[in-house]
Design a protein around this nucleic acid. Structure first.
Lengths: 137, 137
DNA sequence: TTAACTTTGCAATAGTGTTGCACTAACTTA
DNA sequence: TAAGTTAGTGCAACACTATTGCAAAGTTAA
């Protein structure tokens, strides 16, 4: 993904595209999976944890990435689709491989509709499937 | 729930019912919702964190409780049904209230069946719905 | 160019989860 | 029942993730 594409994307979500943010976004987008703060930190060595952390928070607030809580012990982040507002309508299943620890967005599998009991409202959901992915099988 | 009932339950799952374990189980069962290590710690003040932690781990290994990762930052635990083996067939949706932070087991809502792409196997799943519960609405 | 604001790096801290070790309680078996 | 073995508990320490305050550096706008 080109840098200026990324910059446009960030701007379209009202986030100023700094060098760090562009880098973080690019890494996430190109990895094709959900990455944790620690994962990202490893990938660029010389960048401060807190800087990445704040970039992710900014992204999250502006629906540029969505958090994935997969039970690995750390929250991971994956890039949203263009029209995503991170509510229940545009969320999908995530697959967590218990062998390699990788978390993959299954955009082809939307979260099924659930009829909640009276009185409950929802705005968000997480559906994580744990198992073994093809490359580990 | 009576103590001797709990003791029988733990024994039936091959866990020796010590005083601490009985207490932890009782607290979980009576709360009617999922509690974190910190929640439990607060409820009895004078019991060691590590003791509760190990009780929970033992319970988890023996399918007496199941962990719930609700995105609150700490793992919570809820008592299993009698015949639960914590695999995908006997799991249910959990509801996380973003106002009060309570996590409720929705035993009446089983996790829907999902057809994974070729090559993926699954043994477990987490389905958390975030929203507002009736008492907070 | 200065002033105002934003972002980054550094350092410190809080919270959760986890382990080693020593002590004690409980269980086993001669 | 006494001695030996095993299991459980409490304490302290520690690792790791997440988070924040503050000061320096960079950016933007008048």
């Amino acid at each position: 993904m080109e840098n200026n594409e990324i910059e446009k994307k960030l701007e379209s979500k009202n986030v100023k595209p700094t060098a760090m943010r562009t880098l973080v976004y690019k890494t996430l987008a190109e990895s094709g999976k959900a990455l944790s703060l620690a994962d990202l930190e490893q990938r660029f060595e010389k960048v401060e944890r807190s800087t990445i952390f704040r970039a992710l928070k900014t992204f999250e607030e502006n629906f540029i990435v969505h958090p994935v809580v997969d039970g690995s012990g750390s929250v991971k982040y994956a890039v949203c689709d263009d029209d995503c507002t991170c509510n229940i309508h545009d969320l999908h299943v995530h697959f967590y491989c218990t062998r390699c620890g990788r978390t993959r967005c299954m955009k082809e599998l939307p979260i099924p509709n659930i009829k909640l009991p009276e009185g409950y409202t929802y705005d968000n959901a997480q559906f994580i499937i744990n198992g073994v992915c093809p490359r580990c099988d």
